[in-house]
Design a protein around this nucleic acid. Structure first.
Length: 470
DNA sequence: TCTTGCGGGTGCT
DNA sequence: AGCACCCGCAAGA
């Protein structure tokens, strides 16, 4: 299915369609946003990303800081876990870590992101004319922190409280803060709501609850209401219960992405959620970020052969060990779209929910080639039908959850589950992407997420993109 | 006070 | 050369 032509250097055409802004991009994904998209202009991300100097003025690079959690992983009143957004500024972050857990007063701990072959997940941004190209590398191996807006909302709320209530309530800030975490499904998780999980194992598990879900489509961060809603405790509960109870799959989170490279992007139609990426073989070698000019892409995940993730904390390993799939070869972060069940490429990893598929040998070899041309086409979506899950139903749950609580967490999780399922299915049924291209990078792309923005027109159409460096 | 972006510089591979 | 990362600076909220 994947076709890669590195030889082709044709310049990418100007994107006619833009992806809906993704607040939580995860996995090896690529999106093209309109230069009008404010969130994209600001290079926003739900993840705490700090600027990284890549000595390239053309491309803004950011790396993930991870998430701040309670060192004791205490459970908040609702059973959720504290997951703070790390301060971006080094100094501010140091201060932040010196503070005590608002819930139990124990120390706070920063869980670094090691989702990109042991290094933090990186995001690349490039403005090119009317489009803003985005590329993410790595799969976040930690829970989601508060989104930027949530963090800001919380701070302002605390300030308000502080100013409105005086002495007698001096203690409230802490409590209220804890309560907020508790209330917000987006950064507080309730283990009880993870029916699919094998079961929390220890501390590590907590993180699972909030694992990133591949970018879900999130129309806009600008919708502050969303966050306001997240503070509604009532909503929170619904949010938590609803989605999970319906979700048959556990969310398996791979501690680390496998290596990935760009090689063959496949364009699939647009999906509201980032594509699932798979990677095949080589150890993380990154090919040029944003090298794809106009391609609409979503990459897909990669797998690392090295299952071991040194530096990985929070019991991920143990969690994996339990998942029963044997090894942690399933790294998939499935970013899948309910609406667009296509997945390109093979899925080397085994997925928990579905019995370990046979992992094909690495079919894709990714190289560091900077110039790659891609051909994308939309794969058939039919194969997904009638599968393990009722995607439509799941999707509807997702929507419900989002509407109810305003948090995207629940829905995302579901989507991820769906993605996993899909990927598993694909893996099992679609041997296609098995082309091995030695020394060649192969990357699978999907069209950007879009509910309204569809690339349907690309169906069956082959798009070629130049992957020269942006 | 903090975020964000920039850029000099270092160390490793 | 590419990448990660440290540090400081400046602008802006």
């Amino acid at each position: 299915m994947l076709v890669v032509h590195q030889s082709s250097l044709a310049l990418p055409q100007e994107p006619k369609h833009f992806d809906v802004f993704q607040e939580w991009p995860d996995g090896y994904v690529r999106f093209i946003y309109s230069s009008e998209e404010k969130n994209a202009q600001r290079h926003l991300s739900g993840w705490a990303m700090r600027n990284t100097n890549n000595h390239n003025c053309q491309i803004l690079k950011k790396s993930c800081l991870g998430v701040v959690v309670c060192a004791r992983s205490c459970a908040l009143p609702g059973g959720a876990r504290l997951q703070l957004r790390p301060a971006i500024c080094d100094k501010a972050r140091q201060k932040q870590q010196k503070k005590a857990c608002p819930n139990c007063n124990s120390a706070l701990e920063l869980i670094p992101c090691r989702g990109h072959s042991g290094y933090p997940v990186t995001n690349f941004w490039r403005l090119d004319g009317k489009a803003i190209f985005f590329q993410a590398k790595g799969v976040h191996d930690h829970p989601r922190p508060e989104s930027k807006l949530e963090a800001e909302a919380r701070r302002s709320a605390i300030k308000k409280q502080m100013s409105s209530s005086h002495h007698s309530q001096k203690k409230r800030p802490l409590n209220s803060e804890a309560g907020r975490y508790h209330d917000s499904g987006s950064y507080a998780n309730n283990l009880q709501n993870l029916p699919c999980m094998d079961g929390p194992e220890r501390v590590g598990i907590i993180t699972d609850t909030n694992f990133s879900i591949p970018a879900q489509s999130y129309p806009s961060l600008q919708n502050s209401d969303l966050y306001k809603a997240s503070y509604d405790s009532a909503s929170f509960q619904e949010d938590q219960l609803l989605p999970y109870s319906k979700c048959p799959n556990p969310r398996i989170y791979m501690p680390r992405p496998c290596s990935y490279e760009f090689g063959v992007p496949t364009f699939i139609s647009s999906s509201p959620y980032p594509a699932f990426y798979k990677d095949l073989a080589s150890p993380a070698i990154d090919a040029d970020p944003l090298s794809l000019n106009g391609s609409h892409y979503n990459a897909v995940t990669a797998h690392d052969k090295s299952l071991d993730n040194p530096g990985r904390h929070y019991g991920l390993k143990s969690a994996w060990g339990k998942t029963g799939s044997g090894d942690r070869s399933d790294y998939g972060q499935m970013q899948t779209s309910v609406n667009h069940p296509y997945y390109v490429g093979d899925y080397p990893c085994r997925y928990g929910p579905s019995p370990s598929p046979i992992a094909p040998p690495l079919q894709t070899v990714i190289t560091t080639t900077t110039k790659v041309s891609y051909q994308a086409y939309k794969p058939s979506t039919l194969k997904y039908n009638d599968n393990l899950c009722d995607m439509k139903n799941l999707q509807s749950y997702t929507h419900v959850a989002e509407n109810v609580s305003g948090t995207i967490y629940s829905g995302m999780k579901i989507q991820e589950d769906i993605g996993m399922i899909k990927s598993a299915l694909l893996y099992q049924h679609d041997p296609v992407p098995t082309k091995s291209e030695p020394a060649e990078s192969v990357e699978t792309y999907r069209c950007g997420p879009l509910l309204g923005n569809s690339y349907a027109e690309h169906e069956g159409e082959t798009l070629r993109f130049e992957s020269a460096d942006y």
